[in-house]
Computed example of a mutant assay.
Amino acid sequence: MTSRRYMLVAWMGLLALHPGCATTLGDVRLHADGAPMSEKCPEKSLEVMRYLQLYVGEAVWVQLDANQSRAEHITLHDGPIESVLDEDIGTLEAPMRLYGRVWTGGEQPVIRYYEAQFLKGKDRVPICAVARLGFGQLRKRPESKPGTAILNSSRAGVYIVDEFR
């Protein structure tokens, strides 16, 4: 067993001692346009990210919606989202799942990730990450209806954060 696997097994034991550490999604306040306001990353998530060697500013590519992977255009809806890591980051190995929430109220969707799901049925772990693309590439297409965001790409960068801004 590699040292990475030992670390994950040890971490899973630590997580079992601290149930209920994920962020409650309903606690996020919204701006007038429906975009979420800033939100602190929970201390437990910060602790877990340090242990998993996930450092603020690190980024990897993801398929934004596990149900629309590699599509030319995708439609995101307000609410929960399941994304798929395309690359390893820290001790998280692709194709790990990321779970979060989408808000489509502004000019571009806001996607925040609160949990990562280990493969083979292991527990979810708390994290703080956001989806981003530069140069307006995550902007909604003009034909997007309220509550949805039609995007030109199924991929985005996911960045580890210590606070959602």
Rank of each mutant, 00 (worst) to 15 (best):
H73S: 12
P142K: 14
R101Y: 00
V161A: 03
G26T: 15
D27G: 13
P109T: 14
F135T: 10
L14W: 11
I74S: 12
T23D: 03
V60C: 07
L133C: 08
Y114W: 12
Q108H: 15
E82R: 14
Y113C: 05
Y99I: 08
E39C: 12
P42T: 10
A129V: 03
Q108T: 06
L92H: 04
A35Y: 03
P95Y: 06
M37R: 15
L46A: 09
R124N: 09
G100R: 01
D162N: 14
R165N: 11
V62T: 03
Q117K: 15
E87C: 09
V48P: 01
G20Y: 10
A16W: 02
E72W: 13
S38W: 04
G26L: 09
V130S: 11
L138N: 04
E93L: 07
S153F: 02
P109W: 00
M96Y: 12
S38I: 00
Q53A: 14
G26R: 08
D33L: 04
E43V: 10
M12H: 13
Q108V: 03
A71D: 08
K122W: 09
M96A: 15
A16L: 09
L64G: 06
A66G: 08
S38A: 15
P126Q: 13
S154Q: 05
R165D: 09
A16P: 03
E87I: 04
R4E: 09
A94Y: 02
W103S: 06
H31T: 04
G121C: 10
L17V: 04
L15W: 07
R132T: 04
D86H: 10
G105W: 01
E58K: 05
S3M: 08
I160Q: 02
L138T: 03
L119T: 11
W11R: 07
G13Q: 12
G90R: 10
F118G: 14
R4K: 13
F164R: 13
L76Q: 06
Y113S: 05
E93T: 02
T91V: 07
V56M: 05
V60A: 11
Y55P: 01
T75L: 05
T91Q: 14
V84S: 06
V102D: 01
V62Y: 01
S45D: 06
S144P: 05
K122P: 00
L119N: 12
L14Y: 10
R70S: 15
V60S: 07
N67M: 10
V60R: 06
L17I: 05
R112C: 01
L138G: 07
